[in-house]
Nucleic acid binder design. Sequence first.
DNA 1: TCCAAAAAGAACCTTGAAGTCCATAATTGG
DNA 2: CCAATTATGGACTTCAAGGTTCTTTTTGGA
Lengths: 212, 212
Amino acid sequence: MADQARDKNDARLTERGRATRNRILRAATDMMYVRGVAATTLDDVRTASGTSKSQLYRHYPDKDALMRDVVALQASEVLEWHQQYLTRLKSLRGLERWRDALVERVALREGAYGCPLGSLASELADQDEGIRKTLAQHFEEWEGLLRAGLERARDSGALRPDADPAALATGMMAAVQGGYLLAQTARDPGPMKISLDMAIDHIRAYAADEGS
Amino acid sequence: MADQARDKNDARLTERGRATRNRILRAATDMMYVRGVAATTLDDVRTASGTSKSQLYRHYPDKDALMRDVVALQASEVLEWHQQYLTRLKSLRGLERWRDALVERVALREGAYGCPLGSLASELADQDEGIRKTLAQHFEEWEGLLRAGLERARDSGALRPDADPAALATGMMAAVQGGYLLAQTARDPGPMKISLDMAIDHIRAYAADEGS
DNA sequence: TCCAAAAAGAACCTTGAAGTCCATAATTGG
DNA sequence: CCAATTATGGACTTCAAGGTTCTTTTTGGA
């Protein structure tokens, strides 16, 4: 009882305990991404992480708690990846570099598995209101990276003053998610590239001087 | 054994039997859309359709077979709905009417549940290769409606000759799917409208005479 | 009206996944 | 180095979901 509360945040875990916990979370995150949350059993996680049932139980009261940590980890990794490209964004050129990296990433697995956050959202949004809200916040943060970049581009004169960074960022997010889904279904990164090109062209229409 | 083969296509079923089969399929389709495929139990379907276990078994050898019919029904209904707006499409004006109807449809349920086909795709694409291919074909058919409409628009002079209907249709499909996912996660149809507006604007950039 | 075939209903079985518990091994502090 | 605490392994229990089978009811044609 006191144990569970303590273990939730790994405050008083030894090095070894924390390593086990991380192995569990890593295995669960990877499997839930590839197979889906419902299709991933705790026994799968146990095997893949090289641990045992009682360890799952020690570190997570139930599958839901594990799932919530999976969402958090996946979100932090996705955000971190995009930050890498977007925190200093202020031109169309930067947006194109980001697009190329993203398309490359999707091409590496031939489109499969979809967006690490998007597929969680699709599976869980209408099932657990708490997780839905959490995911909505993560999406907002992600969109915020784009919006901030576009604002910098506008303020620095790369985009016209009448450009609407918020709407452009939302459109770009939809292009990303739609591209992911079409790529996943077709097992082909092609649609992702076309989709992102569309969204960038749409932004380019607000470029200060015509042409790229 | 002969029974199963016979029942698969409702060739030699009586009126009553066909009605039961339809009730089962309708209930399964609705529930799997709202709750997801994995979260829908056969017992749920049995209750919702007012039938019993042996009837499920009689009409469908297993859950997978039911699932496949659900995909087919959902696809035919989605396609039919979009055909209604897209078969005679040949101008931006028509595209805008379609967009308004789609946004209205999403707004009715406050964004929830996502795309009837897209959420099936996200859940099943990496789980069952056969279903993935089927869904890819349905998406292609859907995209084909858009592409054909854009080709008519181009041939009738509404779009410039250098417009690429295939790429524009793919971009539009991504906008639809991305819009659905963001609307589902945010429980707000707003992103769907912004996303479709972006895709239409992108097409408008290829309009023969400037402006709409 | 009666009979054969089809459909419905409900009890039953099997499997697999989540969750529980306890004995043993490892680790850490005094 | 010993005792106390923490981590581990694996067996066990429970439960729910899928799937099966049998009996009863309904239907439709001779």
